[in-house]
Simulated scan of single mutants.
Amino acid sequence: MKLTLRIWRQAGPGDAGRYESYEVPDARPEMSVLELLDALNSRLVDGGEEPVAFDSDCREGICGACGVTVDGRPHGPAENTPSCHQRLNPYSDGDTLRIEPLRAEAFPVIRDLVVDRSALDGVIEAGAFVQVPAGSAPDADVILQGHDEAESALDLAACIGCGACVAACPNGSANLFVGAKLGHLALMPVSRGERSSRARDMVREADAEFGPCSLYGECSRVCPAGIPLRATGVVNRERLRAVFRR
């Protein structure tokens, strides 16, 4: 099928940017959004034109490197699915797709569809460390943890840090991301020693870089890891807990 792509092209952070239209005459329903961009770039390179820059790594939905906005929706039309797994099944011959970067003030455009998501790294650097005693590895049953608690921690640890939640939020909030990280570490026995200091530092960094959460809920619908909306409440819970516990 033939698809028309309206793609955001921006030479660099200082460039105003603009949309440019391209045609891909040999798109297939089983192709992903990234494979569609691959097909376009092959045609552009063969024609001596500059290919479209975009982020990509594992293409297995686990690295969080990819991330574009398709027709105004981070990653694409399918809920809880990364860009590399967004298929072209919903589209028909002759359709037009608008592809642009993840839009958020905290994610400045570097080039074309590539954005700087280092603000998320700053949150992790602010508090995501664990102090453990050096020496030989302890026996597996020394630190006990209940099954339900462990499963809840693993559910939150599934966050891949792609930033789609920030781009989907009208306020540019990162509370789903921050809540997933704080909640995961708060549930693990080995990382509870820094729980209060971690919450203070990570929340402070998030407040400086991202907007407030108003519980719109768009974040959980685009999250490729399916992090539940209740994770946003972990941020305020851990914030308040850190006030009264040192």
Rank of each mutant, 00 (worst) to 15 (best):
P224N: 08
A168V: 07
P13G: 14
K2W: 04
V24A: 11
K181G: 01
C169I: 04
R117M: 11
C63H: 00
D139G: 15
S92R: 14
L88W: 03
F129P: 00
S92P: 01
L5V: 05
C213R: 00
C213G: 10
V234Y: 12
N80C: 09
A225L: 03
L36F: 08
F177C: 05
F54Q: 06
R195P: 02
S83G: 12
V70K: 09
A16R: 15
P101T: 12
A27K: 08
G48R: 13
G14R: 13
G226F: 13
F129D: 10
P51T: 09
C223N: 00
S191V: 02
L240G: 03
R241S: 12
M202V: 09
E149A: 13
S152L: 11
A157I: 01
E149G: 08
C159L: 07
L5R: 06
Y91P: 07
R43Q: 15
P138N: 04
P74D: 09
I227V: 14
V24S: 12
A174Y: 00
D95I: 01
G47T: 06
G146C: 06
A153C: 05
A104E: 09
E20H: 12
T69S: 14
M188C: 07
S220H: 10
A137R: 14
A119M: 07
A53C: 10
E49I: 01
I124Y: 05
R241I: 00
H147D: 14
P101W: 00
L215T: 10
L5S: 08
R241L: 09
D116W: 01
N171P: 00
A157E: 11
D201V: 02
S118D: 14
G161N: 07
D112R: 08
R18H: 15
H147A: 14
L187V: 01
I227E: 02
S173P: 02
P133W: 03
S21P: 01
C165N: 10
D95K: 04
D71K: 04
A199L: 10
I110M: 14
G217L: 02
S220T: 13
V123H: 04
A208W: 03
G163Q: 04
A167D: 08
E23F: 03
P108H: 09
E100R: 03
A104Y: 02
G233I: 01
P133V: 04
I160L: 14
D121S: 08
F129R: 13
V123L: 11
C223R: 00
G72R: 07
A137S: 12
S32V: 10
E105M: 04
L97F: 04
P224T: 07
L154M: 13
N175I: 00
C58W: 03
A150K: 10
L144A: 14
P74H: 04
D71H: 03
S42E: 15
R192Y: 03
P25I: 02
E238G: 06
Y91C: 05
P133M: 05
R6S: 14
C213E: 01
A242T: 05
P29H: 05
D148Q: 12
D148W: 03
G48W: 13
A128L: 15
C169W: 02
